[in-house]
Amino acid sequence: MSPAPKKSQPASDVILEVKDLVQRYNGRAVLNGLNFKVRQGETFVIMGGSGCGKTTLLRILIGAQKPTSGSVHLFGEDITQASPQELDRIRLRFGMNFQFGALFQSMTVGENIALPLLEHSQVDPSLIEMIVKMKLELVGLTGFENFKPSELSGGMRKRVGLARALALDPELLFSDEPTSGLDPVMTAVVDQLTLDSTRKIGVTAVVVSHDMTSCFRIATHMLMLGNGPRQGEIIAEGTPEEIRANPDPFLQQFVRGEADGPIAFRLSQDDYLKHLLQEG
């Protein structure tokens, strides 16, 4: 039997606290001693380049994966030590919006949103129908409850995923790349929905993204994960203004979206010649 989760006494407004989090794959550290806190009401954006460990971090935060070491305190309970029953109880307090929606293809949009309500609430079916309509209205998809996910566009699917994640009125919303693959208008629509969720409904949001425009539009607090030589480290953390003003070259290259800089994805001409000579 798993030991009971350690109850910590974090500051009252801290919803999520990550301590000394390490994740290794075959000895290689993907996440290397991360420490951060998410406070109630924040829109906390985790950004970083491809392969920096954003998705791994998100999987650990939702309890889908156990870290190599360290702890994740969600609502004051360490989910890395929680038993499956305890984890399920904690999971009812947060929602997860998957990158591609992860909608059940065999169900209609309405059934997708109603599923968590049917499974975890004692609400009358007629009331569930009404809640589904309200959630669809919230994401701007009124009248789509009888559509199948395959009949929707990518942006609509993401919005249905958000509606499903908000079905049980969670205190915390995790969102994985909510705007990837969307056109600028749809990106703005999804960003506005995330803002509405936090400002109007009072949900705390943890968003993983590499879309800089979107990040700066929605974030109240930002965290940048490094890759390459700084793999798995926190390069910078702060408010959007602090991030913009941070002189770290890794961060600035990423924020400006420049090809040349300390984040090497290709060899410079000199390095390439050296590389060839070494091989020769």
Partner: peptide, 9 residues
């Protein structure tokens, strides 16, 4: 979808 089920407890 299986992962989504787990996350929905």
């Amino acid at each position: 979808e299986i992962e989504a089920l787990r996350v929905m407890a």
